[in-house]
Simulated scan of single mutants.
Amino acid sequence: MKKTLLGLSALLTIGTASAQGTITITGAGASFPYPLYSKMFAEYKGANVNYQSVGSGSGQKQILERTVDFAGSDNPMTDAQLKDAPGKLLHIPTAIGAVVPAFNLPGVTKLNFDGPTLANIYLGKIKTWGDPAIKKLNPGVTIPPLPITVARRSDGSGTTFVFSDYLSKVSSEWKSKVGAGNSLQWPVGTGAKGNDGVAGVVKSTPGAIGYVELVYAKQNKLNFGAVKNRAGKFIVADNGPASKAAEGVVIPADTRVSLTNSANADAYPIASFTYVIFYQDQKYGSRTEAQGKALKNLLTYMVTTGQQYNEGLDYAKLPAGVASKAKNIINSMNYGGKKL
């Protein structure tokens, strides 16, 4: 099957004939799972689904404002954000994805990185590819001494959160000076919108490095580095190593958890769940009970039948225990107190 990456700002509209008639479900947010959601929604037969890939930060804002039925986000909302919401918001993970350091170095296809080195590149402390820290991780590799062009997100981004969450765990300097978040005060870098925007900067700029979700690196034919995990192994991102990041992690009932820098010896260290966020009580504004049921049916599909599309698009499936927790969360949805 040929994979097609749709543009970041594109609006995915899938129309189907169904028992739900003309019900349309709207969502917005993360670009991280956009290739997967494009496929899921194209195959879904229960309703029309519109999903706008505008970044996790925007998705969270829109679900708080109740202008969409669901938000896509690569990081869970904080307790403070949830407290400010006009109703109880729920999270369910739909996949596990990997964030990779993609690079453009003429003549170089494979590189090793570790957390401190990536942090120092993004702190602006490592400025050229010929830096001793990079050479030490890559013995025998002839690396051109080009200046490093740092590419990063300009929009509120769950991919940024995942990457910066990882850096905060492996670099005390990064944690104290920059920290983790959807939007950051970047020390250096060229900003671009969406995973596809960052991928575009890397692809067009010799000497560039940028963090992107795995599928965007593959579809743009970008080289990406192996990253040293907590066990000291250099791991190349793939479905298996990404899935390993969730093994041994205690998943809370609400599923909000970080998977970065996993202790699993075979895990890729910059991995994360990607989430859908929605209201438990679907009776608000002018919403009908049928709309609430349509959303519940879609979400159930995403964590069950829809999982068949994850691996073919370079995402890991939900572990069985996590999928079970997600179904329990979905089943708690109601319409004005009435179970959907």
Rank of each mutant, 00 (worst) to 15 (best):
M1Y: 05
L6F: 03
A10G: 02
L11V: 07
T13S: 14
I23H: 08
G27A: 12
G27H: 14
F32Q: 00
Y34I: 11
A47Y: 11
N50D: 15
Y51N: 15
S53A: 10
S53G: 07
S53Y: 01
S58N: 10
Q60L: 12
Q60A: 08
Q60W: 07
I63C: 01
D69H: 13
N75I: 07
M77D: 02
D79R: 08
A85P: 11
L90Q: 11
P93Q: 08
I96E: 00
A102S: 05
P106G: 10
V108A: 15
P116C: 01
K125F: 01
I126A: 07
P132Y: 04
A133H: 01
A133R: 02
T142N: 14
I143C: 03
P147A: 03
R152A: 13
L167H: 00
S168G: 04
S171L: 08
K177Q: 14
A180H: 04
N182M: 14
L184C: 12
L184M: 13
G189W: 09
G200I: 00
V215G: 09
K228R: 11
N229V: 06
A237Q: 03
A242Q: 00
S258L: 02
T260E: 06
N264F: 14
Q280D: 03
Y284P: 06
S286I: 14
M302V: 12
N310L: 09
D314Q: 06
K317S: 15
L318F: 03
G321P: 06
A326E: 00
K327I: 06
I329P: 07
I330Q: 09
N334I: 08
Y335K: 02
G337V: 05
G337Y: 09
